[in-house]
Amino acid sequence: MDTSSKIYIAGHRGMVGSAVWRALEKKGYTNLIGKTSKELDLKDQTKVRSFFETEKPDVVIDAAARVGGILANNDYPYQFIMENMQIQNNLIDEALKADIAKFIFLGSSCIYPKFAPQPLKEEHLLTDTLEPTNEWYAIAKITGVKVCQAIRKQFNKDYVSLMPTNLYGYYDNFDLKTSHVLPAMIRKFHEAKNNNNADVTLWGSGTPMREFLFVDDMAEAVVYAVENELPEFLYNVGSGKDITIKELAETIQKVTGHQGEIVWDSDKPDGTPRKLMDVSKMKKLGWQYSTELQEGIEKTYTWFLENIENIKEVKIEVN
């Protein structure tokens, strides 16, 4: 891939898309395109078609999505399945029609069945029922994976899907009502430290195990997919290592400097006991993560402190 190749990053203002943009710039790519949702409504097929006809990108990276936590998925199931399918279908279909050679579709580990064997392998896709709390988002993403697979099969184009594990890092969502576990803990421990090191109460027992990946590492995986033709249609992207929620809390407590107690509310649910990705396929190709968890948390907390005045206004756009 020539560094002057035109690369369109859908979702370039979000946590993943902005990390991909930084990673490509760092590698010397000079022809990157990004549009906000006000500039280009990805749910509008006609506008997406006009954009591709005008810009003619060589590569499309789809990091755009309607995202949210369990509550949002539960309250707005129609929007989560329909809007995500509209966004990805318009991007994929119009990219195909515009004869764009390379398309990288980004999804989520929630595409895999709730009770799939651990660690999660790519071949576990569509082998059992999904997690009910986010099945609407998951079904949309599964559709994107299968559409890209169909294009590979029928048109022999380099359309590939990358499924990341739990991501965290710069431009994360730190809203306590809608954020994921790691950024929510960073905010909780920070605020408790500033409140005379008040105790921090966390849900469950702390025993479930989770895997986390620093978003800049995810971006490097995307760059790898840009610069190489991957032989299969679907790849997991993660660290391949997990820790207990208790260990995560203790690590974040250490990084933030919180001196109070951690209280586990065992009356609250734990969730799935374990969720770990098998990342052996990407590793075999030559890519693997580089940022250990504590280092990534330290970088994220530094960013959080530098942006704390605007943190409540940090929102993930669909594009």
Results as ranks from 00 to 15, higher is better:
residue 18 S to G: 05
residue 12 H to A: 10
residue 248 L to E: 07
residue 267 D to F: 11
residue 199 D to A: 14
residue 50 S to A: 14
residue 248 L to P: 02
residue 223 V to T: 06
residue 183 P to K: 06
residue 263 V to G: 07
residue 94 E to W: 01
residue 194 N to M: 15
residue 32 L to S: 06
residue 133 T to W: 11
residue 192 A to R: 08
residue 281 K to V: 02
residue 198 A to C: 07
residue 18 S to V: 03
residue 146 K to H: 11
residue 174 F to A: 06
residue 33 I to E: 08
residue 179 S to M: 08
residue 223 V to K: 03
residue 123 E to Q: 12
residue 223 V to N: 01
residue 241 K to P: 00
residue 13 R to H: 13
residue 247 E to T: 10
residue 42 L to G: 04
residue 185 M to C: 13
residue 228 N to S: 06
residue 33 I to K: 10
residue 185 M to P: 01
residue 45 Q to F: 13
residue 105 F to P: 00
residue 66 R to K: 14
residue 53 E to P: 01
residue 97 K to Y: 08
residue 279 V to S: 02
residue 69 G to T: 01
residue 46 T to L: 11
residue 244 T to W: 07
residue 32 L to A: 01
residue 302 T to F: 12
residue 95 A to Q: 01
residue 225 A to M: 01
residue 196 N to F: 12
residue 188 K to E: 14
residue 287 W to P: 00
residue 276 L to N: 06
residue 216 D to Q: 10
residue 92 I to G: 06
residue 277 M to Q: 09
residue 210 R to K: 14
residue 156 N to W: 02
residue 44 D to N: 15
residue 244 T to F: 06
residue 310 N to S: 15
residue 273 P to Y: 06
residue 283 K to D: 05
residue 45 Q to W: 08
residue 260 G to W: 01
residue 60 V to P: 04
residue 296 G to L: 05
residue 231 P to A: 04
residue 212 F to L: 07
residue 94 E to L: 08
residue 227 E to D: 10
residue 119 P to N: 07
residue 226 V to Y: 02
residue 71 L to Y: 14
residue 267 D to E: 14
residue 102 K to W: 04
residue 217 D to C: 03
residue 285 L to Q: 05
residue 80 F to G: 05
residue 272 T to C: 14
residue 206 G to P: 05
residue 49 R to D: 14
residue 148 C to G: 00
residue 94 E to C: 10
residue 157 K to C: 09
residue 297 I to W: 03
residue 113 P to W: 05
residue 249 A to L: 08
residue 141 K to Q: 09
residue 59 V to D: 01
residue 87 I to V: 10
residue 247 E to R: 10
residue 254 K to T: 13
residue 312 K to H: 12
residue 276 L to H: 03
residue 204 G to D: 01
residue 189 F to W: 06
residue 271 G to S: 08
residue 295 E to A: 14
residue 54 T to Y: 11
residue 38 K to Y: 13
residue 202 L to T: 02
residue 195 N to G: 00
residue 241 K to S: 12
residue 44 D to M: 02
residue 269 P to T: 06
residue 209 M to A: 11
residue 220 E to K: 10
residue 122 E to P: 04
residue 297 I to D: 04
residue 94 E to H: 09
residue 250 E to N: 12
residue 86 Q to G: 00
residue 38 K to C: 11
residue 34 G to K: 00
residue 136 W to C: 13
residue 2 D to N: 13
residue 23 A to Y: 02
residue 213 L to T: 09
residue 67 V to W: 11
residue 233 F to Q: 09
